[in-house]
Amino acid sequence: MKKDRLYFFTMLATIAGYAWLAWNEKYSNMQENTAGTSLCLFRHVTGIPCPSCGTTHALLALSHLHIADAFYFNPIGFILAFAMLILPVWIIRDAITKQDSFYVFYRRLELLLSKRWVAIPFFVLIACNWIWNIYKYTS
């Protein structure tokens, strides 16, 4: 992936993420632990939640500083919250200083993730989270 496209799509994804959160904060009753609006295809088709279902709940809980709730809804929320806070700042910094530090980091991360000793634990963790998700949201 080219640098400009990566920066553009990362920004787009972050903005979409914030917009989605703002919409949910305003129009759905996330605080009362209801199912909320779900765009998850997998959940709509199979009735089983996917590994990252509940992340919206988690992020909203985090924005209200309910850390334990956020962890319960979905631990992936922490990763995404971190990404959503850091990435826009990083990209703007790169744009101002005309560097490509985020691009280099992204490339390194891709290389790291294609190594077996990183990939296997990562997917095992995701799978564990998925099992927990199914247990939480279907029972």
């Binding site: 997998f42 996917c50 992340t55 995404l80 992204y106």
Partner: peptide
């Protein structure tokens, strides 16, 4: 939805992004 297509063709970073965001909502 889980980013498996992106993992297979070698776009690992995008695969992870897709996996963590419910297939980009």
């Amino acid at each position: 939805h889980f980013g498996i297509d992106r993992f297979i063709i070698g776009d690992t970073g995008l695969g992870v992004a897709k996996l963590l965001t419910c297939g980009g909502l």
